[in-house]
Amino acid sequence: MKKVMVLMVLGLLIAAVSGCSSNSSSSSAVKKPMKIGIMLSDAGLGDQSFSDAGFAGLEKARDELNISFDYREINDTGSYEKGLEELVNQGNDVVIGLGFSMQEAIDHTAKKFPDTTFLLIDSESDLPNVHTVTFKEEEGSYLIGVIAGMKTKSNVVGFVGGIDVPLIRKFEKGYTEGVKAVNPKVKVISTFAGSFDNDKQGMQIAKDMIKQKADYIYPAAGFTGVGVLNEAQKSGIYTFGVDSDQFYLAEKAVVTSMLKRVDVAIYDIAKELVKKGKLSEKKTQLGIKENGVDVAPIRVMPLTPAETDKLKEFRNSLSEGTIQIQL
């Protein structure tokens, strides 16, 4: 009997030890949150446009997907490359460079750290460890142009770009073609500010355009564009937001905004990382068809039913590829 009791006690002890071991291995198997680092574009947080949209995408991913993230701004690091290296050294699973101006720094850093995965937004790289996301900004800008062309009373409209680079020329090209598609008589005035972070300069450019009778102005100029919105409202003309819905910045002037869904793109990247542990697509381009660009709700200056139908028709044609914008 004693022998049986001893064997029973030994069995219980073995089961207990086995259970502890199982719980320990189970605990160690719990996945750590995916870590994402982002180097923000030169205007940084508070640009009420591109950087803020990218940051919002990561905040949503943190709240809904349980990722962790950190960020750097050039005002703190002094250079893009230093900020990117800091994020690599933190052990982030993916390091994001937000903006075309990050191209050179991303390439240099990616060569130094070939085992790190990088994501470049708004430009492309051929390096094996750099994935890219670009947008068809010309498609969303075309729709903005259609609205301006339909609604202008003076037959003069304006475009304000930040830095004169191919990316911003895509905005200008789409906008101009959209205007001309519905109203060939309209004159489009274009000015490039040379910066994305000077709202006072944006205000002055808008003033100059208004003197030339522009009654609708479309800025693709980051924080410089916010100055355009403010001046448009002050002067009683109409304008458009860009990248995110900027209606709240000038509620008497912003008719709609060209939505460039950087927040959605970054959130989807985070979702894929959580699900698969890696990025599958090397190069991704997002247009109207892919829900990467669009226009925000139209306010301030409502469209007539006929104008609404026309805008929808152009949107469908862009999505289906029957309208091709030559860049």
Rank of each mutant, 00 (worst) to 15 (best):
M1I: 12
M1E: 12
K2L: 14
K3P: 07
V4Q: 15
M5H: 10
L7M: 14
M8S: 14
L10W: 11
G11L: 14
L12S: 09
A16K: 11
A16V: 15
V17I: 15
S18E: 11
N23W: 15
N23G: 13
S24E: 14
S24R: 13
A29M: 14
V30Q: 14
K31T: 13
K35I: 08
I36K: 09
G37S: 11
S41E: 14
A43R: 10
D47S: 11
Q48Y: 13
S51I: 11
D52F: 08
D52N: 12
E59I: 09
E59M: 13
E59T: 10
K60W: 10
D70Q: 12
R72I: 04
T77C: 00
T77W: 05
Y80D: 12
L84R: 04
E85W: 01
N89G: 01
Q90E: 13
N92D: 11
N92T: 07
D93R: 06
L98E: 03
F100K: 05
S101Y: 08
S101C: 00
M102H: 13
I106R: 03
F113C: 02
D115S: 13
L119R: 04
L120E: 03
S123T: 03
E124P: 03
L127R: 10
V130G: 01
H131S: 09
T132W: 02
T134F: 08
E137T: 07
G140N: 05
Y142L: 10
V146S: 05
N155C: 04
V156T: 12
G158R: 09
F159T: 03
G161K: 07
I163F: 04
L167H: 03
L167M: 06
I168S: 03
I168Y: 02
R169A: 07
F171C: 07
E172Y: 04
E177D: 15
E177S: 10
A181N: 08
A181L: 08
A181Q: 07
K185L: 07
K185H: 10
V186D: 10
G194D: 02
F196K: 01
D197T: 13
D197F: 11
I205F: 05
K211W: 00
K213T: 08
Y218E: 05
P219W: 00
T224E: 00
T224G: 05
V228A: 08
K234I: 01
G236I: 00
G236T: 03
Y238F: 15
Y238H: 12
D243H: 00
S244C: 09
K252N: 11
T256E: 04
L259T: 02
L259K: 02
R261I: 00
R261T: 02
V264H: 03
I266E: 03
Y267D: 01
Y267A: 00
K275W: 00
K275S: 12
K278D: 05
L286D: 04
L286N: 05
D294T: 10
A296P: 06
T304N: 05
A306N: 08
A306M: 04
A306T: 11
A306R: 05
D309V: 09
K310S: 13
K312I: 10
E313I: 06
R315A: 07
L318P: 06
G321C: 08
T322D: 07
I323V: 14
I325R: 04
I325K: 00
L327A: 12
